[in-house]
Design a protein around this nucleic acid. Structure first.
Length: 705
DNA sequence: TACGGGAATATTTTT
DNA sequence: TATTCCCGTA
């Protein structure tokens, strides 16, 4: 025992040790960026297990299952005991697990299907159409409406009240919106669908209607730990309270400076008011930073020091000063990408592996241009955030077959499946689906398909394949094999790039091998963001949104597109609160770096439709002094002075400003040849490496070369 | 009724 | 840049 205690002493500082050995009851660990949070949690679990706690009775709620898994693996190697029974994952996946087992108590029997965001949007679109769309230009689109409903749900607000708070511009549409919301709820009920919010809402409803369920769970999970507590919302806090009701053994870990999920209802309040909610709470603050150099930390502390709200700690560096972070101004996006590529190559020459480097940005599409350059230079990379693997049409297709076998009420997937058949359009698909939903049994549905008259050999074949899925429950991989055999021949007709899609699907098949239960497989896929684990050991540069980079670290980090409008995003202009979240987001971004940090922005950016815009440096970095941030403008002399986004607009006359064949220069695309003279204020130019582009003369002015 | 092609248009962040 | 929508044709 003494020996083991020494291991703790040796590997933890005083604050960490205090957290690890905290007695029973509630405790709050404020853990600054890079302060050894994961290590602390790992040792805490190990310590509990050493005290004789059954690992099966520890619940570890983390941001991703991967994070939980990683921690448990570390505990295993530390103690040499199996912690596989420890439950972990996200709130949403926990909710899904509970509902699958006991949802029957509140009328969710069978196999409810989890609906992702695009599915929800699709459903809403149909409901809007069905209700008669009088083309109200002011009415919200399907996407905005789904978004709004979710916003309101996650804050546990009354709908009307929520609309007034979050969308006052639609206040006079409340009755209409409310009926759409109701129709949406009905649709989900009818088809056994659960959206993300339902996983939390129904779990809470289950707890409320059947208190014994919550009590039993609480009694089972003797110790509950929650990571990234600053990003939990009201519903999640309620879940936690229910789960610890019998014992109060709760440890939450978080950092109010890193709260970046306000848009989905995260409440920093949960962490700030923790001591109020749990007066006996023990509070430990971890301020010692083991990750970043002093120079990087100084920048981070400065960035956050301008925040409107006082934060609960200040990071102290453990590492030597290191290099000053650099801020590089570039003439345009093209230049920014070129700069990054050249720096990456230089860093690699210095011996830094690709996997120790990351490029971070505010929104998924900010990296499009860079991705092209990386591909050209043959630099291997993975991208986190942005579009998901499971959102690709081909993956959704494959899963649709699986979902239908699992939950035959799933109209959306039925339609998707039928759309794969030649000679079957939306009209007939609709008829077939409503026929299918009437039928009570799998066999009768198969027969219905096989006897349906019109596109016949095809429907028969579909029926045959589904027949194989309908018998005894299959393992996910066995089922997918059957589906894939049927679906593969369809690929070339459905997509332009079947080869690429095929690779994706094979990846999915590999992932499925791990699972025995189809529900669990589908749930994980939709709730746990599988980010192509298969080759994670490989040497690849990481591209990531800042949100998806949370909790990760690299020796060298680039943050790109630090301009007003992108970072902070224009969407955050509205309120002070949102702006503060953007600031914390930058704080999260820069604290990912251990040794080298580069902040870049292009002076000119292309806007939608080929227009041009002048960018300002982000307000977060514009005023920082040279001692904190070293500024450079390596390509200044190349800045082409070309155009103006705002009026005065200049329209080139059709009478020959740019005749066909004239060589012109364009700052982004290089030199090109005019293919068609200006017409309707547009001109078509062919560029060497970018092909033909139609440019708007209103906004862009080409320079004759 | 299905389907292809062309044009218009929208682009935060995540479970 | 990718998706969606709309229209003309088979």
């Amino acid at each position: 025992m003494t020996e083991k205690t020494n291991i703790y002493r040796k590997n933890l500082n005083a604050a960490q040790l205090e957290a690890v050995q905290a007695p029973d009851g509630p405790s709050l660990i404020i853990a600054g960026a890079g302060s050894g949070k994961t290590r602390t949690l790992v040792y805490r679990v190990a310590w509990l297990v050493e005290q004789g706690i059954d690992p099966g009775r520890i619940l570890l709620l983390t941001f991703t299952r991967k994070a939980a898994q990683e921690m448990l693996n570390r505990v295993e190697t530390m103690l040499g005991i199996s912690c596989r029974e420890i439950s972990g994952g996200t709130f949403h996946s926990l909710g899904y697990r509970i509902l699958r087992r006991q949802g029957g108590l509140i009328g969710l029997s069978g196999h409810p299907t989890v609906m992702d965001r695009p599915d929800a949007v699709e459903v809403m679109g149909r409901l809007i159409k069905a209700q008669g769309q009088d083309r109200h230009s002011e009415a919200p689109g399907r996407k905005d409406l789904v978004e709004l409903i979710s916003r309101i749900n996650n804050r546990d607000l009354d709908f009307e009240q929520g609309v007034r708070v979050f969308a006052p511009q639609w206040e006079n549409l409340i009755p209409r919106l409310n009926s759409l919301r109701q129709a949406f709820e009905d649709y989900k009920r009818q088809h056994f669908l659960l959206d993300y919010d339902d996983l939390l809402l129904y779990t809470l409803k289950l707890f409320a209607d059947h208190p014994e369920v919550a009590r039993t769970l609480s009694a089972h999970y003797q110790y509950v730990m929650v990571d990234e507590y600053q990003d939990t919302n009201l519903l999640q806090a309620q879940m936690v309270r229910a789960l610890i009701q019998t014992h109060g053994n709760l440890m939450v870990v978080g950092d109010d400076s890193q709260s970046i999920y306000g848009f989905r209802g995260a409440r920093v309040k949960n962490i700030l008011e923790f001591p109020k909610s749990f007066p006996q709470a023990r509070i430990v603050t971890l301020e010692e930073n083991y990750r970043s150099s002093q120079a990087i930390l100084t920048l981070a502390n400065t960035v956050i020091s301008f925040a409107a709200q006082r934060h609960s700690k200040c990071l102290r560096a453990h590492n030597p000063a290191g290099e000053l972070p650099r801020c590089i101004e570039l003439p345009h996006e093209e230049g920014q990408s070129q700069f990054i590529v050249s720096q990456l190559k230089a860093l690699q020459k210095q011996g830094l592996p690709w996997s120790e480097t990351a490029v971070l940005f505010r929104a998924g599409y900010h990296s499009f241009n860079l991705e092209i350059h990386l591909q050209k230079s043959g630099i291997p990379f993975v991208k986190y955030g942005g579009r998901k693997l499971t959102e690709g049409a081909h993956i959704k297709d494959l899963l649709a077959y699986l979902k239908v076998a699992q939950n035959p009420q799933e109209a959306l997937s039925w339609e998707r499946i039928l759309r794969h058949l030649e000679g079957l359009g939306p009209k007939r698909a609709g008829q077939i689906v409503s026929g299918l939903l009437e039928l009570p049994e799998w066999d009768s549905r198969i027969r219905f398909l096989q006897e349906y008259p019109r596109p016949q050999p095809q429907l028969g074949r579909l029926g045959e394949m589904l027949n194989l899925l309908g018998g005894e429950p299959l393992s996910p991989s066995a089922a997918l094999e059957i589906i894939w055999e049927y679906y593969q021949p369809l690929l070339p007709r459905l997509f332009e790039d079947p080869e690429y899609r095929k690779k994706d699907i094979e990846e999915l098949l590999r992932v499925s091998n791990v699972y025995t239960d189809v529900d669990e497989f589908l749930g994980d896929l939709l709730l746990e963001t599988p980010d192509g684990d298969a080759d994670s050991g490989q040497e690849r540069l990481v591209l990531s949104t800042v949100h998806s980079a949370k909790g990760l670290e690299w020796r060298a980090v680039f943050v790109i597109w630090l301009t007003e409008g992108r970072f902070p995003s224009t969407h955050a202009r509205e309120s002070q609160e949102e702006l503060e979240e953007e600031r914390r987001l930058l704080y999260v971004a820069v604290t990912r770096a251990k040794e080298k940090l580069f902040l870049t922005y292009p002076l000119q950016g292309s806007e939608r439709g080929g227009g041009w815009q002048h960018n300002e440096a982000s307000r977060f970095i514009a005023l920082l002094p040279e001692e904190i941030l070293r500024r450079q403008t390596p390509m200044r002399e190349n800045v082409p002075r070309v155009f103006q986004a705002e009026p005065p607009r200049r329209v080139v006359r059709e009478d020959g400003g740019y005749p066909v064949g004239l060589k012109v220069y364009h700052p982004l695309f290089g030199s090109g040849i005019v293919e068609e003279p200006p017409q309707d204020r547009k001109i078509r130019v062919k560029f060497r490496s970018y092909g033909s582009k139609v440019l708007h003369l209103d906004f862009a002015r080409l320079e004759k070369a």
